Simulated scan of single mutants.
Amino acid sequence: MQIDPRDDTHSMYRTLTGLVVPRPIGWISTRSDAGVDNLAPYSFFNAVSVDPPILMFAPIDRPDGLTDTATNVRETEEFVVNLVTHEFAEAMNRTSAELPSSESEFDAADVERAPSERVEPPRVAGVAAAFECVLYDVLEVGSNSLVLGEVVSVHVRDDVTTDGKVDTTKLDVIGRLSGGFYDGVDDRFEMKRPD
Rank of each mutant, 00 (worst) to 15 (best):
V73T: 08
R74Q: 15
D61H: 08
M56A: 15
P59H: 02
A47M: 10
A40R: 01
D68E: 10
D68C: 07
R31N: 04
I28M: 11
D64Y: 05
A70Q: 04
D33T: 13
P53N: 05
W27E: 14
R31E: 14
S49V: 03
D33V: 13
A40S: 13
G65E: 12
D68Y: 01
E75R: 12
T69D: 09
M56I: 15
P52C: 02
T30R: 07
P59G: 08
I28Q: 06
E75V: 10
L55W: 06
N72H: 03
N46G: 15
V50F: 03
I60Y: 00
F44W: 11
T71Y: 04
L55H: 07
F44H: 06
S43R: 03
T76P: 04
N72L: 04
L55M: 15
D64W: 03
V48I: 15
D61Y: 00
T67I: 05
A34K: 11
P63M: 11
I54K: 01
D37F: 04
P63D: 13
W27I: 13
A40F: 12
W27L: 11
G65D: 12
I54S: 05
N38D: 10
T69H: 04
A58M: 12
P52W: 00
D51V: 08
V50R: 02
F57D: 06
A40H: 02
N38H: 12
A47E: 06
T67L: 08
G65I: 13
T71A: 14
T67E: 09
G35W: 03
F44Q: 07
D64G: 03
P53G: 08
I28D: 09
G26T: 10
F45T: 11
D68L: 02
D61K: 14
T71W: 04
A34S: 14
S29H: 11
T76D: 06
E75M: 09
S49F: 00
W27D: 14
V50M: 08
N46A: 14
A70L: 07
P52Y: 00
D33C: 07
A40I: 06
G26P: 08
D37T: 07
S32Q: 04
I60E: 11
R62M: 12
A70S: 14
N38Y: 01
D33P: 02
N72W: 01
V36N: 05
W27A: 13
R62L: 15
T71N: 11
N72M: 03
R31M: 13
D64I: 09
R62Q: 13
F44D: 08
P63V: 11
S32Y: 05
P52A: 02
E75D: 15
P41R: 06
D33L: 14
G26A: 15
T67Q: 11
N72F: 04
D51A: 10
I60L: 12
